[in-house]
Amino acid sequence: MRSSTFVLICTAIAAAVFALARWYGNEYAFFAGYVVLQFIVLATAWNILGGYTGYVNFGSAAFFAVGAYTSIFFHKFYPLPIPVLIVLGGVLSGLIGLGMGYLTLRLRGAFFAIGTLALAVVLQTLVTNWTYVGGARGAYVLRPNEMEFIGPYIQYLFLLMLALTVFALSVARGIERSQLGYGFATIRDDELAAEASGVPTLRLKLIATTISGGLMGMAGAPFPYYLGYVQPSSAFGLEYAVNAIAMPMIGGTTSWVGPLIGAILLATIQQWATVTISSELGVLIVGVLLVGFVVLAPKGIVGLVGGWRRGRSG
């Protein structure tokens, strides 16, 4: 399938989802759906670095928060429409991704992961001590109740996140099928051999950290408008870092489908658990599922299905 066809199909599905949600008419569906979509974008973004090149990023929450705090900053400094903020948040977190790449990409495995964790702590400390964006007390964002042409504001946010999801999935699939994705796979498999085959590994890794960081920031940019209030501990929350890793791992990391499936599955379960049992249960469920999949099905759901299909045909 050509990329343009893929984008068209995704857009059609997204439009159908939006129409269905409006027909269902329950405002809560938009609130819950927004979170699920946000995690699809985060998981897809994480997978571009973590799945395609094999560099595990523990600092996803930091990129997400950079997007969120970009919005807070401009909300106070010079209010802009959210689509513009999404682009700005993406650019800024993309640049931070590039910087992080320069500093940490000479490290491998656990050392790289620890480096990304350290970056998250440093950024959180900075934001906590920056009073202009609310410091440790947090910041309020007053959002309008209605959006012209669309109706309730949450529907507008949902629609934006839907568009972002289509964008993120198209980017991921595009990379996967391009020369770039081919190069990423060689880095994941064996960096020395990749260099010896002419792959400029450092440059490709920097491209991966930039795109991955940028998409995470884009996912975070509408966040203050969604909640109305942001504090460092919520924007830098553990659940973002954990989910961004767990969702692709459970879905499968080698293709764009994996993070999509993993995010829909996990985020839906968490939303359901939050409503019916307790919000604390969500993280526990993710933890148990992650351990289970890492031990029993390291290639995730996509790997399981692929193996089952091969088994039937062969």
């Binding site: 020369q179 081919y182 796979a185 060689t186 498999d189 064996d190 002419g198």
Partner: peptide, 19 residues
Amino acid sequence: RPFMSLTVAGNLRVPMVYT
């Protein structure tokens, strides 16, 4: 040091594309 996730032919394709 083959690229384990690529096929045998895929392994040969890498230097052709990147070199």
